[in-house]
């Protein structure tokens, strides 16, 4: 029993990590009023860039950093079209998702070939936390994580503090709520939105790298498999707060973790039904969730000065 719980908690943390990393980024850009449907594609490019960089450098750390840079670049492209060009943000994101699918498939085939043999690369390794990892039950599940894993969970209080207690957080919330009032106060709405997008790009890129190098160590086509959209759902269900995002991603992560546990333990129900679980739970969560008070009022609308 204890072994089951331990393995479930460990599995849950691993499935939650990429969602939480991306969610902690996206919550800031959403709060700033930019709707970014392109999270999915950005994550995919991050996943691919991470593998390629790790392949050539031999270091997962370099892979993670490269993925963050790729996420930053993609996010800035989305920001340019959404904020500066003022194009429909949902369409911009969709374009990026379609682009990312084609781009990663094309380059993947060119770099790694179409052969089925998997190229081995350096992936994120688990680093046991000194002393704490020796604790029973939780030691091997909670305190034995990869670096991005520790980062994701320890960033939650930091993100909460920045969002609620700092001037930067206040400005970000203000440009999403009422950009005109915010501009009247002498703030640069455009710049704040760009910064929020840049930060979220870094986080989403790292999240992508975790998808390909966290538990696996290779890239497969379209491997992000809807996680980007689950992140968007987590931000809504988490009422646009870092702590809410943590809880929502833990729930969605648990549904993925549960899927693997149940798949292994049940012969009666075909495994495909367990594979549907994360997607169905996301739909259900978004339906039963009562509209929260933190949804930014100027969400999805580009800011113009007149």
């Amino acid at each position: 029993m204890i072994a089951t719980i331990t393995s479930f908690v460990a599995s849950n943390i691993r499935t939650t990590t990429p969602l939480l990393l991306a969610g902690l980024g996206v919550v800031f850009s959403e709060r700033a009023g930019v709707v970014n449907i392109g999270v999915e594609g950005t994550m995919l490019i991050g996943a691919f860039t991470g593998v390629v960089a790790s392949y050539y450098s031999g270091s997962a750390l370099v892979g993670g950093l490269a993925a963050m840079v790729s996420g930053l670049i993609v996010a800035l492209i989305i920001a340019f079209f959404s904020i500066t060009v003022k194009a429909n943000q949902v369409i911009v994101g969709t374009a990026v998702n379609i682009f990312a699918g084609g781009f990663t498939i094309t380059l993947n085939r060119l770099i790694f070939g179409v052969s089925t043999s998997v190229t081995m690369i350096d992936s994120f390794r688990e680093v046991p936390f000194p002393l704490l990892s020796k604790l029973p039950v939780v030691g091997s599940s909670i305190f034995t994580q990869t670096i991005p894993g520790y980062l994701a969970f320890s960033l939650v209080p930091v993100a909460w503090f920045v969002m609620q207690k700092t001037k930067t957080g206040l400005k970000i919330r203000a440009v999403g709520e009422n950009p005109h009032a915010c501009a009247t106060m002498g703030n640069n709405v455009i710049r704040i939105r760009y910064l929020a997008m840049a930060y979220s790009g870094l986080m989403v890129g790292l999240a992508g790298a975790f998808v390909s190098m966290g538990t696996l160590s290779s890239f497969t086509e379209n491997m992000v498999a809807g996680r980007g959209f689950i992140v968007l759902a987590a931000v809504v269900v988490g009422n646009y707060t870092p702590v809410g995002v943590l809880l929502a991603t833990l729930l969605f992560g648990a549904s993925s973790a549960l899927q693997f546990q149940l798949m292994a333990g049940s012969a009666v129900i075909p495994y495909q039904f367990w594979s549907m679980l994360p997607y169905i739970i996301t739909v259900v969560a978004i339906c039963i969730y009562r509209k929260g008070s933190n949804a930014p009022a100027a969400s999805g609308r580009a800011y113009s000065r007149e």
């Binding site: 079209f81 060009v85 003022k86 194009a87 429909n88 369409i91 911009v92 969709t94 374009a95 990026v96 998702n97 379609i98 682009f99 990312a100 699918g101 084609g102 781009f103 498939i105 094309t106 085939r109 060119l110």
Partner: peptide, 20 residues
């Protein structure tokens, strides 16, 4: 790779919405 068509599509959509 034929997936380059998807690359082209993404750029086409961006170019279309940039019309504004």
């Amino acid at each position: 790779p034929s997936a380059t068509v998807s690359i082209m599509q993404g750029i086409i959509i961006l170019a279309v919405v940039a019309r504004v």
